[in-house]
């Protein structure tokens, strides 16, 4: 079981003169899905990129099970057990499906202290569409299949924390429901810590345990998913449903 809590303290990130994240603090617990919601430009993607080390020069603290990750290069943060599934662009299209997955597996084997839970065969069982195309270039996959590929690859890296950026983007509602159900099952079974960034607030809150709402780089609300979903004013002002 992965039992690492992710804690972000007063994280601030700037793009030139623009402050994309303004002293954001949040906590994501193992075995829970923590949703990060908000409109376009609220800073959701920047938050994930700052946590995974892709945005450098941010201030503040990122703690994984009490260990400081802020300031470390992205590859070291990945090796520490943070799997970032970036929005839309996470597939290396020039490589085959299996090569993409192998990269996740390689990262998993470098993280020896963690027991291997996932295997290539298991991912193909979970996503039969990938198994049928394992020797094809990832280029040939549909949007939903690409999402399956990056999630499967993240699982093979045996992470403690899964950062998911808009996994529903551009997918048919049926596929979204399927992927969300899968994420929920994984969290319940393995005690993963999941930070789920979504514009589709309604479906994100339906599987999340807790949620944070960002607006213009600041946390404007933090409550249980059920309470956030029930707050009519919040829904109207920030969540759009």
């Amino acid at each position: 079981m992965a039992e690492a809590e992710l804690e972000v303290r007063a994280l601030t990130a700037r793009y030139g003169a623009v402050t994309a994240l303004d002293t954001v603090s949040l906590r994501a617990r193992p075995g829970e899905i923590t949703a990060v919601l908000g409109a376009n430009g609220a800073g959701k993607t920047t938050l994930l990129r700052a946590v995974s080390g892709l945005v450098r020069g941010s201030d503040g603290s990122v703690l994984l099970g009490g260990r400081e990750l802020a300031g470390a290069p992205a590859e070291r943060i990945a090796r520490a057990g943070v799997a970032h599934v970036p929005e839309g662009r996470g597939v290396i299209t020039e490589l085959t499906v299996e090569e993409n997955l192998r990269l996740g597996e390689l990262l998993g084997t470098t993280r020896r202290k963690r027991r291997r839970v996932h295997r290539l065969d298991g991912v193909y069982e979970m996503f039969p569409a990938l198994g049928q195309r394992r020797r094809r270039e990832a280029n040939s996959l549909s949007g939903g299949e690409r999402q399956m590929l990056v999630i499967g690859r993240a699982l093979l890296s045996e992470p403690e924390v899964l950062l998911l950026d808009e996994p529903s983007l551009g997918l048919a509602p049926r596929v979204v429901a399927q992927i969300f159900t899968l994420i929920r099952e994984l969290v319940d079974r393995e005690g993963l810590t999941v930070l789920l960034v979504e514009q589709n607030a309604r479906s994100a809150l339906s599987i999340a345990d807790t949620g944070f709402v960002l607006n213009l780089g600041r946390v404007v609300a933090n409550d249980s998913a059920a309470a956030l979903a029930a707050d009519a004013e919040l829904r109207h002002s920030y969540l759009g449903f």
Partner: peptide, 15 residues
């Protein structure tokens, strides 16, 4: 090859 095709994704995979 992963580094050559996509540095960012490669780094996210611990390369």
């Amino acid at each position: 090859r992963a580094s050559a095709f996509s540095q960012e994704v490669a780094r996210l995979l611990g390369v």
